[in-house]
Design a protein around this nucleic acid. Structure first.
Lengths: 365, 365
DNA sequence: GCACGATCGGTAAGCGCTTACTTGACAGCC
DNA sequence: GGCTGTCAAGTAAGCGCTTACCGATCGTGC
């Protein structure tokens, strides 16, 4: 009650600083942005006033004038929780994008940028226009996981720089993704040559996902080359989510389908579901059926059995996406447009493929 | 090559729309913001032009003029990984704030707001000023987990609405947190009365955390009331991170300290570390020592043994924080200032406390 | 001591919107 | 018919910055 909460005490403007320093607003601006050569004492007085008043320039005004918001929009796809309750723990699915975002954020900070994050539900009607609204608050956009159809993507890319993650590059956008092909080939070769498995199945991710398709192709390629049977197709399609993987196995088992010697999953979440379904039916992993994942999420090593997976530096994915976008924003990035950037991946052998149990080891020991 | 990527094709402005519709910019603005009563045909022509041009107002310009950015800044604390040890993938630690943010984001969208996210490393020199910069890009700020000292918090709150999470309310800020007291009391009563344990220890979170303190007080209160021994103090202090919990146990064991019958941890991450350290030393959980966590992160049920914990709706925490901040931003929220809002929690009994094994069930099966 | 060029700093014009104020058209009234 | 009251639509003034432009000031060389 004593110190009246002067909640209205508007933050100081550049005019306040100029007055306090006895100079013009132009000088203040110049000192703050290192433009021109202010005389030492001018600089001094401005800096003094700035720190006394605790002045920080308003973002909107700066953005409007400098035509640079120092914000990049990030759009993640929100899983649909068609099942009953709003907040199921398919939340876990967001762990992957969140880690990518973390990588972006850290790099973004070095350039003074912040991330404006928005999740969209693809089923929702206005999904597209929400993204355009985000775009007008940003200098560039990073799109996770196919959130826009090609037409809209094109229209968006015409307005500002766009980078996609795990998508496809277009004439005007760049794409960043893990090296799915070599990662999956490593899995396939390990299962086929090191373990000698002769029948494999592929639990795909959701329809049309470039990651899932590339991984599937790589797997098929190795299987063909080794003369090994690969089962895939609609019945084996998952959704990148645990529930999808579990449901697929349940369905197949219910239909009396025989399980292959090894089930290769498009990502770790699917593998978790598969593991769960198999254990429900008393099928031993890796004894009867081996299972592998992709992504090597932290949770992979806490599972029983520990999940064999393909590691990609998730944070690097984000960092690279940001750097690419940044180069486009700062104008140097014409070369970046249309690029498809692949980041290295490598196989992490644990128990679920049939390798010996290992102690739980730290991720970066 | 054909369709020249007119990357410079600036997005249309309100002037373009006005020209296309044959009206003044004021009319366009009015139609778009539902101000005044535009004649039907005026409205029609404007809407027509808007959709033809794909016009979306520029965020910065709108913000500057309307004095509303429709952005709220969110600051999370980035854990320091000083120890290059065991749990380097403390990435997982960010899962908790990320889930909270998800809750905010969903609610924010309903009001047309987006979240501007920034993580800060407390050790870093400019940590404070970075937050002020974020503030000037936002209409309000949500602070996770004590990222600002009281003075700076005060100064910030004087400039714009601020809500803290798991902090302490001040004259000008509101705080949102889980109901630590009743959650921890439930844990304590369960261990003491249902299991009959007579010696407990408390692995606290990092120094000064209000959550950790409240939880500790609640535990101590119940222990005292039941005449049960509670060990706590510096030697038992963790850091809210797995590494902290593990290190504490290692230290104690090395010093020959006897373990209590049950170890109550300030959060799940600490419990993970404790579990790990105990298992390294061949101490059976819950047979010899029972362990409990707090937060009920998704990972809690994947551990061996499954972790008994206290559940709080993490997303609700975020949603409530945003709603509170929003009411302050829209001016209605003078009442919100100074409030300390507690959200319900409840005990989830699993194996680590000594309860019977349960099948792994999906969170909301 | 003066003219000239190089600097520094001030003035003012936007950036793309919102909105107070004003104009103009038209209807209703005496 | 002239006057006033209404209401839609236009004009213009900012919002708080950056920066092009220009005038003032200073130092230099003759």
């Amino acid at each position: 009650m004593s110190t009246e909460v002067s909640s209205g005490s508007q933050p100081p403007t550049i005019y306040d600083v100029a007055r306090a320093a006895g100079v013009s607003i132009a000088s203040v601006s110049r000192v703050l942005n290192d433009q021109g050569n202010p005389r030492a004492d001018t600089r001094e007085r401005v800096l003094q006033a700035v720190s006394e008043l605790g002045f920080v320039p308003d973002g909107a005004a700066r953005a409007l004038s400098a035509r640079l918001k120092e914000v990049v929009g990030v759009v993640v796809r929100r899983p649909q929780w068609h099942d009953a309750s709003m907040f199921t723990d398919e939340d876990e699915n967001l762990q992957f994008p969140d880690m990518i975002n973390r990588g972006m954020e850290i790099v973004a900070q070095r350039h003074g940028f912040d991330l404006l994050i928005r999740s969209v539900d693809l089923d929702e009607p206005g999904a597209g226009s929400r993204i355009f609204a985000l775009a007008r608050k940003s200098d560039g956009i990073i799109l996770h996981d196919r959130v826009l159809d090609p037409d809209q993507l094109d229209r968006l890319a015409r307005q500002l720089p766009v980078v996609t993650l795990a998508g496809l590059p277009t004439e005007a956008t760049a794409n960043v993704h893990g090296d799915n092909d070599s990662g999956m080939r490593a899995v396939a070769r390990h299962l086929i040559h090191d373990h000698g498995y002769r029948t494999l199945a592929y639990v795909a991710g959701h329809d049309g996902s470039p990651d899932s398709i590339t991984r599937g192709h790589a797997l098929a390629g190795e299987a063909r080359a080794a003369g090994v049977t690969l089962i895939e197709g609609e019945a084996w399609r998952g959704s990148y989510q645990a529930a999808g993987g579990a449901a697929a196995i349940e369905r197949l088992l219910a239909a009396g389908t025989a399980m292959p010697r090894a089930i290769v999953c498009a990502n770790d979440q699917s593998a978790i579901g598969v593991l769960h379904a198999l254990s429900q039916h008393g099928i031993a992993v890796p004894g009867e059926v081996a299972v592998t994942g992709f992504d090597d999420m932290p949770v992979a090593r806490h599972l029983r059995p520990q999940l064999t997976s393909v590691r990609q530096s998730i944070q690097d994915l984000g960092a690279t996406a940001f750097e690419t976008l940044y180069s486009m924003i700062s104008g140097a990035g014409f070369a970046a447009r249309g690029q498809d950037i692949a980041l290295p991946t490598h196989l992490v052998r644990r128990q679920s493929c049939g390798c010996d149990p290992q102690p739980v080891t730290p991720r970066n020991a």
